[in-house]
Design a binder for these strands. Structure first.
Lengths: 346, 346
DNA sequence: CTGTTAGCGCCTTCAA
DNA sequence: TTGAAGGCGCTAACAG
């Protein structure tokens, strides 16, 4: 018995009256083992409650059948949905998942990466923090196992990736509002330094500019990093003279702040103001009115991520040759009740 | 070099010009190593990008520094919040987390348990599926590592646990409604066979009975297993003659269905009907009106779970002697706008 | 204080 | 078809 009290392959072998090699072959289906022996081994294993020691197996085989999942922020429902889907797909493919949440903290991200490296996970799905830290790309490049970026890219890191077209996401939001007649609109976003926010801004702004209704600078609320900041920004927009007839929040944290601010006023959605955001949320559909959103195809993202990563694990040669897959998926509009035509409000 | 391309302790030893034992001691702080050597070893390890092979270490030491997290249903926000908090606490204590979602599926739960056993995780946090499967208690009893139940207990399985007082949760909801003058109330729940739902029902019903206002059988909607069923049940309640002045949904899935149904009618909350449920939800506070809920102390639950489990890992003797900790935490009421006094509606 | 050595449990040649 | 043996990388005993 091992220290854990669990039986080892030796004890199975003894009980079945065969050698350890035969047990291994019988249980794993590798090598040739006669049918009667196989049955005897299996029932011996069963009766002892034998479970092969994963660490020993990994040490020997060089594979762990574990995937690392490094998430920037688990409180974000978008990531949560992704985690759940990836776990399901990985599990179906026979892989377990070690979950790491960095909470948008560079130090934690670094420690988590180190840990995943120590664990020798077979592959890593990276949903990195926004905050860059020195040496990060170097550390990531040194990861010898297959890895894949989801949601955002990292400058200087060449690797497989699955992202969405964020410029298109911004444009979809804009075109929807334009079609409803909106010309004076506001936008709440985080830092334009951040890739994703910037692309969403670009798509949104360009579409309005192209339509001959450029967005006024005073309606561009940048640097709203969290729900509270978004709430404050929203109050500014709502209180401004000739306020916007529609507001676009570039992600769901910010949308929460925006909706909170609106709820604190007597302004009615969508009659007096239209609201649109990105990312579906569990509550978006039970709100009254329902929230119009640009959807990210979460399941498709997860699917592409797992498929690509497992492919790399099975055949790492291509990646080593410097070939990388960059999958870009398309967001789409889901119209619910929070957006409406410009009315008397204008 | 190992097959993974990562350096081993031998290479660090060679570069530092010492033996592997010295490297191990220097890096782990075990044994005595002179300061200059320690520095030399550390810089050698650093320059090679050495990361100790966790499987090899586990095989040797008998500990993995990994916790298993077995969750019945990751789509439930309550579990999600728990997972996030547990991951954070475990990580802070130097443990990684393998996340398993059973999706309320017995087969997957069984496979996940087997996997966690093979991985030789140091401890398991169990949030088991509602669905029982044959032999389950036996399998769980055979897990040799420390384990702990969260949220619900399992008949016949003696082990540490952290739960909340669900009877109290039901009573808190009832007392709140009683204080507001409600006497004719409805309830939407899953199966009374299920421990948690039954306790919530008991607390709720007993409080009303004690107040001389027993709940009418026609207002007791049992067997609403999901959001859709809850929605249908809610429609029945709302359409009934002399409909209830308040409705209690015993969990957040069901609350979603209830709120959806109400949104499909013209009935106004809380003027015409009060709504109360259990579990906070990210959107409960931005709803208009905000949702009154009986809160589960999620952080406290996670904290108790991790603390207790790590305690067992550090000192397993007590558990082996048959002593078990059963921690029961108290829910509390959070009043927001969805409940109000009975008015003309009555 | 530092080095040598013996396994932890498993799988995979290689012989029989 | 089956068995014996070596070694994956590491740590803990024991020697020096």
């Amino acid at each position: 018995m091992a220290a854990t009290g669990l039986p080892t392959i030796r004890e199975v072998a003894r009980l079945a009256g065969v050698s350890v090699a035969t047990v291994s072959k019988a249980l794993n289906g590798s090598g040739k083992v006669s049918e009667p022996l196989k049955v005897r081994v299996q029932s011996a294993a069963e009766s002892l409650g034998y479970a092969p020691h994963a660490s020993a197996r990994s040490l020997r085989s060089g594979a762990t059948r574990i995937l690392g999942l490094l998430v920037a922020d688990l409180t974000n429902p978008f990531f949560l949905h992704l985690v759940e889907t990836i776990e399901r797909l990985a599990s179906a493919a026979g892989y377990s998942v070690i979950l790491c949440n960095s909470g948008e903290n560079a130090e934690r991200e670094k420690r988590n990466l180190q840990m995943l490296l120590s664990q020798r996970v077979d592959g890593i799905v990276l949903m990195p923090t926004r905050q860059n830290w020195p040496g990060r790309v170097g550390v990531l490049s040194n990861l010898t196992m297959p890895r894949l970026l989801v949601d955002r890219l990292l400058d200087g890191l060449e690797t497989d990736s699955v992202t969405i077209d964020n410029t298109l996401a911004g444009r979809l939001a804009a075109e929807h509002l334009l079609a409803l007649g909106h010309r004076r609109v506001g936008l709440i976003m985080g830092s334009p330094e951040h890739q994703i926010a910037r692309h969403r801004l670009d798509g949104f702004r360009d579409a309005f500019a192209a339509a001959g209704a450029p967005i006024e600078a005073r309606f561009l609320e940048k640097d709203a990093f969290d729900e509270a900041a978004a709430r404050a920004a929203a109050h500014r927009l709502l209180a401004s003279p000739e306020r916007p007839t529609a507001i676009f929040a570039t992600n769901n944290h910010l949308a929460l702040g925006l909706l909170g601010a609106i709820a604190e006023t007597a302004i009615e959605v969508p009659r007096e103001i239209s609201v649109i955001t990105i990312d579906d949320l569990p509550w978006a559909r039970i709100m009254r009115p329902g929230l119009t959103v640009v959807m990210q195809p979460t399941e498709a993202i997860a699917d592409a991520a797992v498929t690509t990563l497992l492919g790399r694990i099975a055949a790492p040669e291509a990646a080593e040759a410097g070939e990388h897959t960059a999958i870009v998926l398309k967001p789409y509009l889901l119209e619910r009740g929070s957006t409406g035509p410009v009315e008397a409000a204008a």
